[in-house]
Design a protein around this nucleic acid. Sequence first.
DNA 1: AGAAATTTGTCCGTATGTATC
DNA 2: AGATACATACGGACAAATTTC
Lengths: 147, 147
Amino acid sequence: MPTPHYGQPRYRSIADELRKRIQNGSIPPGSLLPAESTLTAEFQASRGTVRQSIAVLREAGLVATEHGRGTYACLRPANGGSEESSKTETRQRQVTADAALAALFSVREGAALIEEESVVRRDGVTESVARTYRLLRKEECIGNRDR
Amino acid sequence: MPTPHYGQPRYRSIADELRKRIQNGSIPPGSLLPAESTLTAEFQASRGTVRQSIAVLREAGLVATEHGRGTYACLRPANGGSEESSKTETRQRQVTADAALAALFSVREGAALIEEESVVRRDGVTESVARTYRLLRKEECIGNRDR
DNA sequence: AGAAATTTGTCCGTATGTATC
DNA sequence: AGATACATACGGACAAATTTC
């Protein structure tokens, strides 16, 4: 069977359909979207195509995905009356890259990184801890090895 | 050979190589990149993988593609403060508090936290990695689980 | 103007490795 | 540890835009 498409890519049509369902409440905010396999069956599309459509919604900020769980419809921040009694403490230190960070920065494990840690407290209660990592020196990248 | 993608995925390596060629002038600005079929032969990779690597460069604003024509290396200003074309990827996952985080949040070690990781890339190169931790208990984030 | 070749766009099916619950 | 979902990679197929002959 040939592939009747074009005019509009399949993954975009599916993304449009899912967006409608989210916006009209058919998929309530905060709830799980149907599983990938379910969407595959419903739209008669391959997993790759379904995943592509979900990626569209994710970039649009409409959904968020958790490994091993599924994809949620986001609740948009209503952001009610938040007090302004929060304080931020920041400090810096030098650390060495663990495996995960080394992969992200494309450097070897143990390379020097700058870690900046910001602790946000509100009413004395820690609300969030942010750790930002940057390369200490540029051009610390690993050369490409032969394939 | 099957498909081991230890360390850096293949499409990123290819993207790195192509980026080098663009930035060192081997592929002059405004000129066409080799066709996908050519790159497929050169890198001994499937077309899908080659296209994925080109997509990386396209999102970085290094190249532009036209249907039926090909992919061009963009002429872009050698401007000093190129603050554009940086992109942030965000993902969330659930982690357990280590000793340091447990102390900051005044919870017991091993307590559940939400980690939000934002990776900022400019021209495909990782510039910073920020990890923000919050307590799971509130309705801060989307994934309120019933279990 | 028309046909063929080239090139990118989309889609399918599959396989396997990786991460999380 | 098993299930689920995600990430990477392969190969093949057809559609559509462009170029070339």
